[in-house]
Computed example of a mutant assay.
Amino acid sequence: MTGILDSVNQRTQLVGQNRLELLTFRLMGRQRYGINVFKVKEVLQCPKLTLMPNLHRLVKGIAHIRGQTVSVIDLSLAIGGRPTQDVDKAFVVIAEFNRTIQAFLVSSVERIINMRWEEILPPPEGSGKANYLTAVTNIDNELVEILDVEKILAEIAPVNENMSEGIGAEIQQSKRGDDIVRRILIADDSTVARKQVERAMGSIGFEFVSVKDGKQAYNTLLEMAAQGSVFDQISLVISDIEMPEMDGYTLTAEIRRNPDLKDLYVILHSSLSGVFNQAMVERVGANAFIAKFNPDELGNAVKIALAE
């Protein structure tokens, strides 16, 4: 396992080309899972775990890693499976989501696979664990499931989804005032993340159109443009970066290429808080980047967008 992620920092050229690399792993069974390498900081043999009182039932224990105290989440148990056995032979995937470091306990780690986002598809209808999936793909004629980590984290440590009342008032008092179109297009493959943004925007009086990936977002914008000026229908786009079929970088680039859409204000809103490529955000033409999830920061970004 030593060195499997040594080249992660050299992989940023994949960003913006609608490509990603998946680190594949298994839990308590034959099913394979994947996580985007850009969210992974390190993979280790499971260190010694310390049990502490009042830990969440999904937290296997606390580990001291690189000078940090990290909660180790039993990923199998978190998605409704059996608790991970033989912990001393298991691995932890150290990842950064939503501004914090987490460790996910997995039974085994396999390899890194270079893929296109077009090969990453929404979960099939009726999938047994669909409520914990953001996407699926096929590798070596085997279904690989990509988990909704944000949903798991929200169950362990719920975040505040309410925006400060003052931000809504400031938006209303901005120079555009009552002339703004109080409707936003939201694109995110995570049900939890999508709902968080919807609640935050709804709390300040905005309506929203929500879609599950960049391709759906772009098609929605094309449909709007066919009906008339898109600027009379929405004020801005808030998009995740990692999404099946079309990622947020590619969505932004496509918006900028389309004469009917090119002046739309785009906020990229991602859990890739520690490793996102600011140069790429600017290169594809996004107006702003906000790390998930702070409702006031998101509200302030919307306020700036509407004031321009």
Rank of each mutant, 00 (worst) to 15 (best):
V159R: 08
T100C: 13
N160E: 09
N300V: 12
G214L: 04
N141F: 08
R66I: 01
I113M: 12
S190D: 08
A288W: 14
Q13F: 14
V149E: 01
E245Q: 13
R19A: 12
D260I: 02
L236N: 03
E42N: 12
F97V: 00
A200M: 11
E155V: 07
D6E: 09
K89S: 15
L22E: 02
K303D: 07
T50I: 09
P158M: 08
R283N: 11
V209H: 13
V93Y: 02
S203K: 11
V230C: 02
D247E: 05
D148E: 03
Y218T: 01
L105I: 06
I94Y: 00
L44N: 06
S190Y: 06
Y33K: 04
K60N: 11
R256C: 05
A226W: 02
N162F: 13
P122H: 04
M246A: 05
A63G: 10
E223G: 09
L236K: 01
I146N: 00
N277I: 00
L22T: 01
D213A: 12
R66N: 12
H56I: 06
Q68L: 12
M246G: 04
E308P: 12
L14M: 11
T137Q: 02
K262S: 13
L51R: 13
V197S: 08
G128A: 14
K195R: 15
E165F: 06
K39W: 04
V59Q: 09
Y33I: 03
N294E: 13
E245R: 10
I101R: 02
V87W: 07
G81P: 08
A95G: 09
F293A: 08
E150K: 01
T134Y: 03
L221E: 00
N300L: 14
V237N: 00
P83G: 12
M224D: 00
L58V: 06
N277V: 00
A291R: 06
G3M: 06
H56V: 10
A130V: 05
I62P: 08
E170V: 07
V149H: 04
G168E: 05
A301K: 01
D188R: 03
N114P: 11
V275N: 14
G34H: 03
I62Q: 11
V159Y: 05
L264Q: 02
L20D: 00
I62H: 10
Q31S: 14
I94G: 00
G128C: 07
F91Q: 12
L121N: 09
N294S: 07
V70Q: 08
I184P: 01
L58D: 13
I139D: 03
L49Y: 07
F289R: 06
W117Q: 12
V281I: 14
Y33A: 04
D188H: 05
A253E: 08
I255D: 03
S71C: 13
A225S: 09
N162H: 07
V59R: 05
V237L: 01
A305D: 06
T191Y: 15
E42W: 09
L121E: 12
S7G: 05
Q196Y: 13
D6C: 08
N54K: 15
L44I: 11
V237D: 01
L75P: 05
A187V: 07
D74G: 08
E245V: 09
L58Y: 13
E245C: 04
A193P: 05
I204T: 07
D296S: 02
M280G: 03
S71F: 10
S270V: 04
L306Y: 09
A253N: 11
P83I: 11
Q216T: 02
E118R: 11
